[in-house]
Design a protein around this nucleic acid. Structure first.
Length: 873
RNA sequence: GGGCGGGUAGCUCAGUCGGAAGAGCAGCGCCCUUACAAGGCGCGGGUCACAGGUUCGAGCCCUGUUCCGCCCACCA
C-alpha cells in the first residue's frame, strides 16, 4: 500500500477547517442552550469584554479556558449555557469617543448630553462588534442567541431595580464627603479606580507657621505645599512636651493672614516623625478630613473641579495646583519661613483611566453601604459555597471585603446607566424610582429633573450572572442556570468584579453566583515581561491565529495554564502544538491508508491492541481528573504524551506488521483498534482543538454528525488490562535495550542483530518476534551466552546481544566503567538503606521488599560487570 | 508596615502520599525507515536559593535568612 493511498491532504489546514465548521456550528445552533433539555445545568457567564476593546492575549486565554470547559461539559452530558456579552465600560468608552470627536474639533460639552450619547451609540454600533467577531475567530462555543450588553434594555432594568431596592433598604445613600476626584476626567472615582504609582521621587518640604502671639513658630512638613491654602489647623500630639502647652493657641497663616488653631490629636500625629507637628487640610486629605471631623474644623475647599486654586486661595486663585505649589514655595521663602526640603520617596495616587493625579475633594455623591453586603460574601466563601482555584486567592478576597469602605457609585459622566433619582426644584426632595418620575415624591411638584450622574460601570457588571439570565423577571433561564458553575477570570478584577458579583448575587438571589472561581495568570512575553504597547512586546492573538491556526494557538495557551502561574508566551511554544497537530494528522493519514470503512468489532484482540486501548483509558481518566481540578496544563500534557509517545511511537509501529501483513484476524483487530482509538481521540481533543478534532471526526469512516455533540470519552469504555500492560512493557523494555546497545556500540540500524536469553524470557517474547525485528532489528534465540556479547537485564532476565561488528574496545571499556560506577553507587545506596534499623523497622513493607530484591539483582549485575571489565583489561 | 506567590537541567516549567530528580524546548551522536525530516532512535545535562530543625529517610513538613514578582495599606 503506497504512502499516498489516502484522500486526505498531506497536511492539516486549520483555516480551511475553520471556514468549514465555524459557520456550520453557528447556523445549526449546536451551542444554543435549552432550559427544557435534560442534563445537569452547567453555566458560564463570560467576563464581558469592553465594547471599546479589541482582543488581546488575556482575552484569548480567558476564553480558551472557558471554551474548553463549556465544550467538555457539553460533550459530557451537561446542559451547558455559555452566555456571551459585552460591557459598556463607562469611562473607557466615553474617553475613546471623546478623543475621536476632539480629533474632529468637537468637544463633548459643546455637543450636549443627548447629542454626545448619540455619537457613542453610533460608535458602539460600528465598532462594538469588533471584539465579538475576534472572539469567534478563537472558536468559542458561546450561545450567541443570548448575547447581552450591559446597557441593553433588560440589563438596564436590572440596574434600576437593584438601585431602587438597595435604596429602599438603606444600602444606597447620598452623602457629601471626601471622595477621590479625577481633575481631568472631572468625575469622582471609587477607591479601586485609584492606582498608586510607587517610588515617585518627591520632596518633603518644611516651613514654619509663626505663632499668632509672636512667641515662636511651629515647623510642619508636607509633600504638597499648595494644600496649605486650605489648612485649618496644625495638629500636635497631646502628650508631646514640645508642643502640649501650645494646644488651643493659634498660628498665623503667612500667605492668607488667617488664624489657624493648634489642636492635639493622638491618632494622626506620630511625635517621632518629622517635626512632630502636622498641617491639617481637612478638605483635601483623607487623614486630615478625619481630624477635621474630630475637632470640628472648617472644611476649606481650595480647588475647582479641574484642580485650579479657587477664590479661597486669594492671590493664588486661578493657578493650577502645581503652578501654585512653586509659587507658594517661593513666597514662603521670601518671607523667611522656608525650613528646607529633603528628597522623599512617595506614592502618587493616579486615576486608573486618565492618569491624572487624584485630588481628594469634598463632593456630594451616591454610595453603597458595604458592611452588610460584604459580611455574607465573606461567609459564603468561608463555608465553601464558592471555592477559588487556586485557593490562595481567597485570602485576597477576604482581606479586601473585611475592611472595605463604602463604594462611591456615582460618576460625573454621560455614558452609562443614569441614576434613577429625580431632584425636586421646589422642595429639594429626591425621588428614587423604577419608572421615570414625573412628580416629586415628597411635595408632588412636577418640577423634577433626573440626577445628571451615571453609575460606576461595575455597578451593572456586579449583576451580570443573574441580570443576563433575565433578573428581575423569573425567567426559565434564571431558574435553570443560576447559580452558574464557574467564573473564569484574572486576579486583577477580584475586587472590581468577583467580590461585587458575590455580594450582589447573595443579596438578590440568596445564593452565590458561581460555585467555582478559576483565577488564571497573566500572559507575559517570553522574558516574563508584561506585554505593553510602549514596550512593543504585545502579541496579537489574531496574528498568532492567522499564523498557526486557532487549534494550535488555543492549545498553546491551555498548555501554559498552570494553576497560580503567569504564562510566558513564546512562538516556540506554538510550534510544539503545531508539530503535535501535524504528528496526529500524519498518524490519522496512516489510519486512512488501512481503514476504509468502519471496522466490525473483531473476534479477538492482540496484546498490543489491548495495550493501546488500556492506555487510552488511562489518558481519558487523567485528562478528566486534570480538568476537574482546573489543571489545564496537565490535561494538555496528558493528551500530548498519549498521542505522541504511546499511540504514534509504539502502537502505530506495532500495528504495521499486522496491517502490512496477510488479511486475517490480526489485521482486523488492528484496524478496529486504530479506528477506535481515533474515534476516542477526536472526541477527547474536541474541547481543546475543536476544528482539528472536527476534521478528524468527519473523515473517520462510520461517523455521523458533528463531533461537538458526541459524548466525551469515558474511562470505562476502555477496560483495564494488566496482562497486556505487563506484556507490552516487557516487549518495550527489550526493544529499548537493544536499541540502546546498538546506539552505544555504534551498530548501524540496517545491520541485523541476534540475541540470546534464558528460556523464560524467550518464551515470553516469542509472540513478538515481528515487533523485535521491525522495531529493534533483533532476532531472539535460546541458548548459552555467546562469546562476544553485550548483556543487559530485561524484565529481570539477562539478554545477550551478539556483537557481529568490530567492537571498539576502548569505548566498551569506558561504557563498562560508567556502568560499574552506576551499579556500585546503587549497591552502596541500597546497602546503606537496608543496614539502617530505622528504615527496616518503619518503611512500608512493599518498599522494603523492593529494596531487597533490587540489592540482590544489583550485586549479581556487579559481579558480571566486573568479570566483563576484567576480560577487556 | 501587612499579606500572597515564586527560586528545581542552558531556557520555560511539572513534581499529588515524605521513599534513588521529571517533561518540553535547546544541546550532542546516529538514521531520508514505505504516517510524519514539521520525522525516528539513542545520549548527556541537577549543591532542588541559603542555613538550621523534625524524621530511619526531606525538593516536599517546621523555623530563620535571602533574592525576585505581585497585592493591600500608609506616607506630615
Amino acid at each position: 500500500m503506497a504512502a499516498d493511498d489516502t484522500t486526505l491532504p498531506a497536511h492539516y489546514d486549520p483555516h480551511a477547517a475553520f471556514a468549514r465548521y465555524a459557520p456550520e456550528w453557528e447556523a445549526s445552533a449546536v451551542f444554543r442552550a435549552d432550559p427544557d433539555a435534560p442534563g445537569a445545568p452547567y453555566c458560564i457567564v463570560i467576563p464581558p469584554p469592553n465594547v471599546t476593546g479589541s482582543l488581546h492575549m488575556g482575552h484569548a486565554l480567558n476564553n480558551a479556558i472557558q471554551d474548553v470547559l463549556a465544550r467538555w461539559k457539553r460533550m459530557d452530558g451537561f446542559n451547558v449555557l455559555w452566555l456571551p456579552g459585552t460591557d459598556h465600560a463607562g469611562i473607557a468608552t466615553q474617553w475613546v469617543v471623546e478623543r475621536t470627536l476632539r480629533a474632529q474639533g468637537i468637544e463633548r460639552r459643546d455637543l450636549g448630553r443627548d447629542a454626545f450619547l448619540e455619537h457613542v451609540w453610533r460608535w458602539k454600533a460600528e465598532s462594538g462588534g469588533t471584539i465579538v467577531r475576534q472572539l469567534k475567530r478563537l472558536g468559542v462555543s458561546c450561545d450567541w442567541s443570548r448575547e447581552r450588553f450591559t446597557m441593553d434594555e433588560g440589563l438596564s432594568r436590572a440596574v434600576r431595580e437593584n438601585f431602587v431596592r438597595l435604596h429602599e433598604e438603606g444600602l444606597i445613600y447620598r452623602d457629601t464627603r471626601l471622595v477621590n476626584w479625577d481633575p481631568v476626567g472631572l468625575t469622582a472615582l471609587s477607591d479601586l479606580e485609584v492606582e498608586t504609582e510607587e517610588n515617585v521621587q518627591g520632596e518633603l518640604w518644611s516651613f514654619a507657621y509663626p505663632l499668632s502671639d509672636g512667641s515662636g513658630e511651629i515647623v510642619v512638613a508636607t509633600t504638597r505645599p499648595e494644600t496649605m491654602l486650605g489648612d485649618t489647623a496644625v495638629a500636635v500630639h497631646p502628650d508631646d512636651p514640645r508642643y502640649m502647652h501650645l494646644i488651643g493657641k493659634t498660628v498665623r497663616h503667612p500667605l492668607l493672614d488667617r488664624a489657624i488653631p493648634i489642636v492635639g490629636d493622638a491618632i494622626l500625629v506620630d511625635p517621632a516623625f518629622g517635626t512632630g507637628a502636622v498641617k491639617v487640610t481637612p478638605a483635601h486629605d483623607f487623614n486630615d478630613h478625619e481630624v477635621g471631623k474630630r475637632h470640628n474644623l472648617p472644611m476649606l475647599v481650595i480647588f475647582t473641579a479641574d484642580a485650579k486654586v479657587n477664590a479661597e486661595g486669594g492671590p493664588y486663585a486661578g493657578l493650577d495646583r502645581f503652578v501654585a505649589r512653586r509659587k507658594i514655595k517661593e513666597d514662603i521663602a521670601a518671607l523667611g519661613l522656608d525650613r528646607g526640603a529633603k528628597p522623599h520617596l512617595m506614592t502618587l495616587p493616579k486615576s486608573q483611566r486618565s492618569g491624572a493625579v487624584v485630588e481628594p475633594m469634598v463632593s456630594t455623591q451616591w454610595f453603597m453601604r458595604m458592611k452588610p453586603l460584604a459580611t455574607p460574601a465573606v461567609g459564603a466563601v468561608e463555608h465553601g459555597f464558592t471555592t477559588f482555584h487556586p485557593t490562595q486567592w481567597e485570602n485576597t478576597y477576604y482581606a479586601w471585603l473585611r475592611d472595605v469602605k463604602d463604594w462611591c457609585i456615582s460618576r460625573q459622566l454621560w455614558w452609562g446607566h443614569r441614576i434613577p433619582a429625580w431632584h425636586c426644584a421646589a422642595c429639594g426632595g429626591v425621588t428614587v424610582s423604577r419608572e421615570d418620575a414625573t412628580a416629586c415624591g415628597r411635595c408632588g411638584s412636577a418640577e423634577v429633573s433626573q440626577d445628571e450622574d451615571v453609575l460606576d460601570t461595575w455597578f451593572s457588571s456586579a449583576l451580570w450572572p443573574f441580570s443576563t439570565l433575565g433578573w428581575p423577571e423569573r425567567t426559565p433561564d434564571l431558574a435553570r442556570y443560576y447559580p452558574t458553575a464557574v467564573l473564569v477570570t484574572g486576579f486583577d478584577i477580584i475586587f472590581f468584579w468577583v467580590a461585587r458579583m458575590m455580594f450582589m448575587g447573595l443579596h438578590h438571589m440568596g445564593h452565590v453566583p458561581f460555585k467555582d472561581v478559576y483565577i488564571h495568570g497573566l500572559v507575559r512575553d517570553e522574558n516574563g515581561d508584561k506585554m505593553s504597547k510602549t514596550k512593543g512586546n504585545v502579541v496579537d492573538p489574531l496574528q498568532a491565529i492567522e499564523a498557526h491556526g486557532a487549534d494550535a494557538f488555543r492549545m498553546t495557551l491551555i498548555g501554559l495554564a498552570g494553576l497560580g502561574r503567569d504564562l510566558l508566551w513564546s512562538d516556540k511554544r506554538v510550534e510544539t502544538w503545531v508539530r503535535f497537530q501535524n504528528k496526529a494528522w500524519q498518524a490519522y493519514r496512516f489510519l486512512h491508508m488501512h481503514v476504509k470503512e468502519a471496522p466490525a468489532t473483531p473476534a479477538a484482540l492482540g496484546p498490543m491492541d489491548r495495550w493501546i486501548l488500556a492506555r487510552a483509558g488511562t489518558c481519558v481518566e487523567r485528562v478528566r481528573a486534570a480538568l476537574d481540578a482546573y489543571r489545564f496544563n496537565d490535561a494538555a500534557a496528558e493528551i500530548y504524551a498519549f498521542t505522541w509517545y504511546e499511540l504514534c511511537d509504539w502502537y502505530l509501529e506495532f500495528s504495521k506488521s499486522s496491517l502490512y501483513g496477510e488479511d486475517g484476524p490480526a489485521k482486523d483487530a488492528a484496524r478496529w483498534t486504530l479506528w477506535t482509538v481515533f474515534h476516542a481521540l477526536a472526541r477527547m481533543l474536541s474541547p481543546f482543538m475543536p476544528f482539528f478534532a472536527e476534521e478528524l471526526w468527519r473523515n473517520l469512516p462510520g461517523t455521523t454528525g458533528t463531533c461537538v455533540t458526541q459524548a466525551w470519552p469515558k474511562a470505562s469504555d476502555f477496560p483495564r488490562d494488566d496482562a497486556a500492560l505487563a506484556e507490552v512493557a516487557l516487549l518495550q523494555e527489550a526493544i529499548v535495550t537493544v536499541r540502546r546497545i546498538r546506539s552505544e556500540k555504534e551498530i548501524a540500524p540496517r545491520v541485523p542483530l541476534a540475541a540470546t536469553c534464558d528460556e523464560a524470557l524467550r518464551v515470553a517474547l516469542a509472540p513478538h518476534a515481528a515487533a523485535l525485528r521491525d522495531l529493534a532489528g533483533v532476532t531472539l534465540g535460546g541458548g548459552a551466552k555467546p562469546a562476544s556479547a553485550a548483556t543487559a537485564v530485561v524484565g529481570g532476565h539477562e539478554l545477550h546481544v551478539v556483537l557481529e561488528g568490530v567492537l571498539d574496545v576502548a569505548k566498551e571499556r569506558e561504557r563498562l566503567d560508567r556502568e560499574l560506577e552506576r551499579v556500585r553507587k546503587s549497591v552502596s545506596f541500597l546497602e546503606g538503606r537496608l543496614g539502617n534499623e530505622g528504615f527496616v523497622a518503619r518503611a512500608p513493607a512493599a518498599l522494603l521488599e523492593k529494596s531487597r530484591a533490587e540489592l540482590a539483582a544489583d550485586r549479581e549485575t556487579l559481579a558480571k560487570l566486573e568479570t566483563a571489565r576484567a576480560a577487556l583489561a
